[in-house]
Design a protein around this nucleic acid. Structure first.
Lengths: 203, 203
DNA sequence: GGTTCCATGTAAGGTGTTACATGATTCA
DNA sequence: TGAATCATGTAACACCTTACATGGAACC
């Protein structure tokens, strides 16, 4: 009764969906595609911080279709024919509500860090024989993965505002932003130069 | 036949245990304690990157006891009396093997990052109305959590070698190491000064 | 004696991964 | 036609979290 409207509004609660389901809506908002294409795209972009596996994806496609958030592009031909999916109006609204809602806290499972913790805390046995050094080397590998993760979320294409990013405070993110800005500048330059045949030699 | 010995050696494969089980062995290697104490300790230290929940902990205590990696300190008195556990020789060996073995890859589930990804990729609708700015602000919060996570693994107490840490290369970890070193220096100073009554006023 | 916190344990449900099964398509 | 790859789907299992149930201990 007190609700001004039943139309979903930006401030409304998003529906309760699984992580995989949100990934589906997200990818279908970019373009209509099949489940398999979503799987491949996810593996190449968000996999590091937002895992998507087939065992979850296909059931969720059915589920989202029943909820009316996505719809099959054409009638399915044959039992296992390729099926294109597209986002519905309701799905688009749900996605916007998801964007606006507060996020789940970050979850990490980092085995190398756990080992480092216990080995460093434990008796001198742990610190013998280069164990700590090797664990730290493993941590460097993990850190590289974190870099990839952040790079995936700050892609070359659409830019966060530099002034916003500069205010973020966390040194790591600032560094990352610097790298990102440099990369983007290269791309800009490449695009601009590419339009002029005189500059074709320049990478 | 070709194995030189059946005694477990540093290079051997560790037994297949769940993450919670390794946490138990790790904490019992520091001191004998009860399941509840492990739960509390984990909440205050490794929780950010190595979750431990009661629903997993108590069954795993039984499991590890059956495997002979831990043992009950005294006979259980009453059905739900407090029970102390300690690490066995076999448990200590398993832990050492775990330290030495390669680690599972880092796993992250970061909802704010996923939103940022799709909102930035999507149409201009995503970039309207300060949405991106708000998502970036959420990222700053997440970054603070990452800082806490790393701080937990580089505690004040036992130090990784500064020269090793300096070689890590990843700027974020280097920055973190700097903060850690500063904090440790403060603690050292506090300890040293504390021994001399003339310095008691100094924090 | 009742309340509060300590402490162990269980049940239910959700999430996720892997491996496999099956059918379509393509290309040699 | 056969093999490889695309594509969908399922089953089994591992793990995790939450919420709850139960009992002991301490304190008023």
């Amino acid at each position: 009764m007190s609700e001004p409207s039943t139309e979903s509004q930006p401030g409304n609660e998003p529906p309760a969906l699984t992580p995989t389901a949100w990934a589906i809506l997200g990818y279908l908002s970019l373009k209509s595609q099949s489940g398999y294409e979503i799987l491949r795209a996810a593996r190449e972009s968000i996999a590091e911080f937002w895992g998507v596996s087939p065992g979850q994806l296909y059931p969720q496609l059915q589920n989202l279709a029943e909820l009316g958030f996505i719809q099959a592009q054409g009638a399915a031909e044959g039992p296992r024919a390729k099926q294109q999916w597209s986002l519905t109006e309701a799905g688009q609204q749900a996605l916007q509500q998801w964007f606006t809602a507060p996020s789940e806290p970050l979850k990490i499972r980092d085995e190398a860090l756990a080992k480092l913790f216990f080995a460093a805390k434990g008796g001198p046995a742990g610190r013998d024989s280069g164990l700590l050094a090797r664990l730290q080397a493993e941590r460097r590998r993990i850190q590289a993965q974190l870099d990839r993760t952040l790079a995936a979320a700050l892609p070359d294409g659409p830019l966060p505002d530099p002034q916003e990013a500069a205010k973020l405070g966390a040194p790591e993110l600032a560094v990352r932003y610097g790298a990102h800005a440099a990369r983007t500048a290269r791309h800009w330059a490449k695009d601009l130069l590419g339009k002029d045949p005189r500059n074709r030699a320049e990478p």
